[in-house]
């Protein structure tokens, strides 16, 4: 009898926790560090924001290639997924690169890696925030 009463309450609590975790994860993806900020993990939030931001600024400054959704092959698509991992910072990088990418030199090639790394790092941080919100990590 007691179990029957507790079970729906626990289920509601779990689904509430899950919904909150998804919101935290998505927020962390859209704005780097926001997921951790919502969890009041200020150090991690600031570190994510600054590190992803720095990678995007340097990558765009080095005129790295920002992939678009209209890629020709699997590598372009993977590059697009990695770049989009930076969330809103993808559009910041696009606005900074007014004259487009220049990968004819090693600098531009490094810039491409910096931009992709920014995206993947932000996805990792968003996933971390999601797991923390679910209570799986500290």
């Amino acid at each position: 009898m007691t179990d029957e009463i507790i079970a729906p309450a626990a289920s509601r609590h779990d689904s509430g926790l899950q919904a909150r975790a998804v919101i935290v994860g998505v927020a962390g993806w859209i704005v780097p560090g926001l997921g951790h900020a919502l969890l009041k993990m200020w150090g991690r939030a600031l570190a994510c924001f600054l590190m992803v931001g720095l990678l995007v600024l340097v990558g765009a400054g080095m005129r790295g290639n920002l992939f678009t959704s209209s890629g020709n092959d699997a590598f372009d698509s993977l590059g697009y997924i990695a770049d989009m991992g930076a969330g809103s910072f993808y559009f910041l990088a696009r606005s900074l690169e007014k004259s487009g990418a220049d990968v004819s030199h090693a600098t531009g090639d490094y810039g491409t890696r910096f931009l992709a790394t920014a995206g993947v790092l932000n996805l990792l941080a968003a996933l971390h925030a999601y797991e923390v919100a679910r209570g799986r990590k500290a």
């Binding site: 590190m51 080095m62 007014k98 600098t107 790394t117 790092l121």
Partner: peptide, 21 residues
């Protein structure tokens, strides 16, 4: 808004940023 970094500077910056994160 454009700058160039050497190979070593790029590696150092990359390593530092990833290590901190």
């Amino acid at each position: 808004f454009e700058f160039k970094l050497s190979h070593f500077q790029s590696m150092l910056l990359f390593a530092l940023v990833i290590s901190v994160a």
